[in-house]
Amino acid sequence: MVKNLVAVFSTLIGLAGLMLSYAGHRQKVRQEAQEAQEAQETARRAEELRRIERDREQEQEARALREEAREQRERAASARREWERLQASMIGGHIALSPSSLNDNWVVPQVVIHNGSNQPVRDVRVFFQGEVIHELPLVGTGHEYLPQPPAHTQEERYRRQVTVEFTDVAGIRWRRDGYGALQRARQGTEGQEIWEAPETPVIESALRPSDLTDAGHQMQHAPARMPETPPQGPPTGPLSGPSAPPAPSAPYGGGAPAGGGGAPARRHVGLLRLAVVLVSLALIAGGVWSLIHH
């Protein structure tokens, strides 16, 4: 009777050991699956950070290229406008006063149109105190003298009451007053001349025609630089450094410690589980054998 109880008790203990071993195996499988899922999530987040960093670097590179292109266009436009007003800056008019031979209190004024460029200007109109006093189809290089009626004045202001309108060799219409202000005209919607804001005359220009050609050629034919693809690996740049958030090694606080420190513990647990299974099987076999033979 005692042997039978011992056999039954041994069989129950063996079955309990097998059940515990099976439950431990299930727990291990679930833990490994969770760790694999967490590792995949970590890799996905790291890849997402790398993608965001690549997109940010490419956007910064594209923004820099757009800014460089805009600056090139502005420099080329500024150089072209300076070149366009180069000849106009050499055209002007003023009144020269000569003493009258008939009366010491009177002067003989002359409107002097000077063209310091090496090209003529056309469709010249000369204004004095807002009224047209002369119209010339063409004014060559040098000076053009236009006599005026005698006047009873010596004021400097009188000498500057001359405005000259002309069209340069590029076909641009200009206006230059006695004080040196330079304006260009543009065509309005109804064909009338609209004078733009005054521009600074070119006193001394270092520009050459080839400068404008080279600037336009560089803008039109320069190969566009494509953003370089950053090397694959941990993100660098704005997201790196002391202020960057550390890359998560194990989301939600899980995962195995780095460096493989959990490998010996897992190996010991596996050996212990195998020993429990073998002992359980031995107890079950012994119990069954005892029940059969008694």
Rank of each mutant, 00 (worst) to 15 (best):
D55E: 14
I133A: 00
V269S: 12
E57C: 01
A23Q: 15
Q87V: 12
R125D: 06
I95N: 05
H294L: 14
R122K: 10
T163S: 05
H152Q: 15
N115Y: 10
P234Q: 07
V124G: 06
R45C: 00
A96T: 06
A222S: 14
D55H: 02
L278E: 07
L207Y: 14
G233K: 06
Q187D: 05
E74F: 03
D123H: 12
Q183F: 13
V121D: 06
T42Q: 11
T163A: 05
R159L: 03
P251E: 09
E68C: 00
S78I: 02
Q27W: 13
R26S: 15
G286R: 08
E57N: 06
P235G: 04
L291P: 00
A170N: 09
S240R: 02
R159W: 07
N4D: 14
D211I: 00
A79H: 05
Q27L: 10
S243D: 07
P99W: 05
V202I: 10
D177N: 15
Q161H: 07
I113Q: 02
P230F: 03
Q192S: 13
R122Y: 07
I13Q: 04
A256P: 03
P248V: 14
A222F: 06
V162W: 05
R45H: 12
Q183N: 07
H25L: 13
W106D: 06
G255F: 12
P235M: 05
D55T: 06
R51F: 13
S290E: 04
V108A: 11
A258L: 10
Q87W: 08
G17L: 11
P120S: 12
G171I: 09
P242N: 00
Q27H: 08
R176Q: 14
V126M: 03
N103L: 08
G241A: 03
L49I: 09
E165T: 07
Q218W: 11
A39H: 10
R225D: 13
Q60F: 11
E32V: 09
F127C: 03
R81N: 11
P238C: 01
E135Q: 12
L136N: 03
E156D: 15
G14V: 04
